[in-house]
Design a protein around this nucleic acid. Structure first.
Lengths: 209, 209, 209, 209
DNA sequence: GATGAATGAGGATTCATTCAT
DNA sequence: AATGAATGAATCCTCATTCAT
């Protein structure tokens, strides 16, 4: 059910474990993933895994931490008051997630099972993420015709278009017979995001973007 | 961890089981839900549950079946060549899901764990759903400036704005301190959808909406 | 390592489990006893055991509870201000423990590992036991030449002569090649206790015994 | 759960290990003690421990050996035909055990779990100990009114009053709110032993005390 | 002598499921 | 239709021990 992954050859043991865990947690969720499978995929005995991580839960959090850090950094540096919702930011996020779609699935799993043992992580990660995003949005030029209480909805829309998109990319791709992760598809999604942004927030309808 | 739900008092035993299962599957996913907890929440002994459903898997599918039928029907009757992506359809879906947000979470769980023992269900439910929606979209008047290969992206966007929205409503509501399920919030979301639709697909840029 | 015990045939399942557990806990202590061995000795699958007791710890406490109750009752009814430390009490305790020497070992295990997860039980059982015993002792006629702060030492002496004796009976019996549990040996120990009591607390040195 | 003990600073590594092991074995018994905890308490990695002792079992036996030697020597040199059961012997044992109460607990653990992998040790240590003690007792002057088959019972009594006393000192002290290990308490126990001996074996009933 | 990493065996416990009542 | 009791398989994790460094 889980054979040693080829990509993680030269890396350190903890990294191999994190890779294996990330893939399986993303695919099956926390409860659906057996420690034994993570171990097998890392080429280890399950017991060895506990030399590197204290528990399944701790491993899960390490996976999340490692995955979230770059996203956090992208959000951090992107507090610039540029173009509408910061097309550069959207582009970078899209690029990053297209490279590690597991991450998007992990985050969506988190969001779905919210109430449980991970709500703290949501508080720790998602909330500041939204705080920053809100701040960025408010600096955006043309918010004219959105009500203040529609802002969170706009934000969620972007959340869906980025995280939701890549979280469902693989599954939906299979069902629809498409590939949402090819470089071309990623370019298309980036272009799509720009177009959507232009229409939702963008330049005055009479002028150019 | 799971006490008998008050709302399902007068209903039949299978319905009480389905209610309990729906809530727990939505909250914790398939793997994260224990049959014993479903039984407890239904006021039953775990063994009794097997008088009504053949297995956990069968119960899960029954939950999905029961939940999906009304959605399927909404989609069915809404193949009318009306206004942009059929605002009435969007409104009905929104209304329905706001009443049973569990369903939205279930569907998103399905979408996330795609590969597994549920892919068949995705094929059975999601694919026709998308087929219908695509058909509906293509009948929409102003698709002028969207490329053909952007259509699935538009579709996904609507999927997110409907299913993703209500799937994350509870969790995100907690984190952001908002209530996305109040009647008022549902009205706002419906209005928001209309606005988004108007901008994405709607009225000629020179005319009115 | 543990074959179904013959003595516990007709009894109820929980009782069979308690019997098995008592024997093994007495022999090997809490940490040294495997749930699997208790199950085997009860003629059960380890999982079945959890239909009757919540955990190993809970089972252990049930064993202790069941074993302590009769002792507690003996102590209860023996608050009579009779002869020196109530020879009848000593006799009854001796008789009882000689019939279930496991109990004595269990109590000594408890006393030895004191600090741990069982200290609460010690507080619950041993302390009142000592309180009662102290009260009884103080009513004893000839305490003349014992200092007040020697009372606990006298108490401990009796604790040893009763509980310690039967706790070590089997092991020491093997080493010394004697049988401390035969009816005759029990009578001898009872006589011995009376003699010791006579000398330690008993009758005036000049008068009768 | 086990932090490096302060007292064993300057000592050699094997001694530090023996100290840690003695404390933990005394507290939790053999089965209840994890090699890892011994290592931690010795300030070592579990693996390092195996540079000094072949196995957990070997370490346990080394602890017992080290602890028993002085007792053995005390018993050895005390075969003198002095006063009733050799008050000096009792005093020395009491003094020694009050200084290392762990030892008393260890011995009682041994006595309790008799049947197992330690019975050989009992044979090796306890039996000669009793042999010597018996010899010593028989040289005692006033055994007049004890039957020959009561001798082992007298012996056990002394065993309890010495080993049992210090084995339970800490635990019982906590429950009763007393300190049985303070110098004063040790003096009191010594005095108590003398008094008991006087009454059980001592001076002619008609003469002086 | 010390250690980080590895492991097979076994630890307690939970799981979904069955069956006699 | 309901349940208490039973169970094999699997759960996460700890154990004592080994070995290359």
């Amino acid at each position: 059910m889980a054979s040693p992954s080829p990509q993680s050859e030269g890396s350190s043991t903890p990294e191999r474990i994190l890779d294996a865990a990330e893939a399986l947690f993303a695919e099956r969720g926390f409860a659906g993933t057996a420690v034994r499978d993570i171990a097998t995929r890392s080429g280890l005995n399950p017991a060895s895994l506990y030399n590197h991580f204290e528990s399944k839960q701790a491993l899960y959090e390490a996976v999340l931490e490692r995955g979230m850090r770059p996203i956090y950094e992208i959000l951090d540096q992107a507090a610039s008051p540029d173009d509408p919702p910061d097309l550069r930011l959207l582009g970078e996020l899209t690029a990053h997630l297209s490279r590690s779609p597991n991450l998007a699935r992990l985050i969506q799993h988190e969001a779905l099972t919210g109430g449980g043992h991970v709500l703290e992580l949501m508080r720790r990660w998602l909330q500041p993420m939204y705080a920053r995003a809100t701040a960025a949005l408010e600096l955006s030029p043309k918010l004219g015709d959105w009500e203040r209480d529609e802002l969170p909805l706009l934000l969620m829309t972007y959340h869906h278009l980025i995280f939701g998109h890549f979280a469902m990319a693989e599954a939906l791709g299979q069902v629809l017979g498409l590939d949402f992760l090819s470089p071309e598809a990623v370019r298309r999604q980036t272009r799509f995001l720009a177009k959507v942004t232009e229409r939702l927030l963008g330049a005055d309808r009479s002028g150019e973007s």
